[in-house]
Design a protein around this nucleic acid. Structure first.
Ligand SMILES: [Mn+2]
Ligand SMILES: [Mn+2]
Ligand SMILES: [Mn+2]
Ligand SMILES: [Mn+2]
Lengths: 137, 137
DNA sequence: AACCCTTTGTAGCACAGGCTACATGTCGAA
DNA sequence: TTCGACATGTAGCCTGTGCTACAAAGGGTT
């Protein structure tokens, strides 16, 4: 029996969500920059995430090992197909949450800040409920 | 000027939330057990969080160093006043989120699971908006 | 008393993700 | 072409949070 995905404890699920969080936020940041025609460097990510450039470099290496980056011209960052897919999903979720909080009356800046953390913790079921709420509101 | 709390970058704020997350979840678990008359042991926390007993012991030591535990009879766990205060706040936030997700049509189990992660990332502004939503719904 | 089982604690390891200090690379101005 | 500034990379440290393997403590049963 049970081809089920291991039936995780609630807290184990949260830990797993945290383990994939940085990768999602990085590819999302890269994706958005590329969409806007900017092509960003280590220094930009350092600014965005508020960490040292060393931390950025090492994190990039990890997500590269996960197959999320494509090798572009030296000094440039590019996403692999999987990276782009993950980035789109992440960006969509982020936007959905911001719109949701805005609809509840939260200010733009705070909606964005809260979405940044919460976006990694919501199930498809809850995201679906949020979409329905936004449609009929 | 500026007695302000440092004006954190969005991602720095998320990192800070994560740093206090375990402590909140632990005191919440202890609090709830004590409320219900059970007094729980290391083995129970091991079960609740899905980690080894070693990890539980070390985490308990850290949150004790943060002044959240009171020393009770050997082998028993008790909360300091600050620990109890934090636990109440955490439990209330958790309940609020569960009720919120339920109101949106999410199942009990999923609402609880999603709340476990998201509860650490919402500002007072957003929590206020959620309370207002629940009142007038 | 001796033994076993459960619980708790210790020793020591791994990895993620922070950091500073220093080294190297690149590139435009002088 | 040399120099200086800024960007990138490396070495090596720390803490939090996970683990396994082993040690000690406590109670029952015989
Ligand atoms: Mn995020
Ligand atoms: Mn989180
Ligand atoms: Mn939680
Ligand atoms: Mn909780």
């Amino acid at each position: 029996m049970s081809s089920s995905p291991e039936k995780l404890n609630v807290h184990e699920r949260v830990r797993r969500q945290h383990a994939s969080e940085l990768a999602q936020d990085y590819v999302e940041a890269i994706y958005i920059a590329l969409e806007e025609g900017r092509n960003l460097r280590v220094a930009d990510l350092q600014e965005i995430f508020g960490v040292s450039h060393v931390t950025v470099i090492r994190t990039l290496r990890r997500i590269e090992e996960q197959g999320l980056l494509a090798n572009a011209k030296s000094g440039e960052l590019a996403l692999s197909p999987e990276g782009r897919k993950l980035a789109k999903l992440s960006a969509d979720r982020h936007d959905l949450l911001v719109r949701f909080f805005r609809a509840l009356g939260v200010s733009e800046a705070q909606a964005d800040a809260d979405a940044e953390g919460a976006e990694h913790h919501l199930s498809e079921e809850t995201l679906g409920a949020i979409r329905r709420f936004l449609e009929k509101s």
